[in-house]
Amino acid sequence: MLLIECPWCGPRDESEFAYSGEAHIVRPLTPEELTDEEWADYLFCRRNTRGDHLEQWCHASGCRRYFNVQRDTVTYRIKSVYKPGEPPPGDRP
């Protein structure tokens, strides 16, 4: 079970959190102008990262706030957590 550091509440057990998918998926501002393929890319296509993954978690049984986690999908090591709107750590591929 992961130990996740909520940016507002501090380190808590994974069981207090809900996973919410890949972070930094931005909803297109003008969906009606997108082709089906472009819209499907926003809807369905996600990175299948081996290594550092930027993902959203919600402290569902705590402060109920969403935040971002940089987690290694191989070792499960959590390298950083940061609030929504803050820039992701390091260079994004």
Partner: peptide
């Protein structure tokens, strides 16, 4: 509730 919070907080 979670759905609405997600949109409000992140988007």
């Amino acid at each position: 509730m979670s759905w609405l919070e997600l949109w409000l907080q992140t988007e």
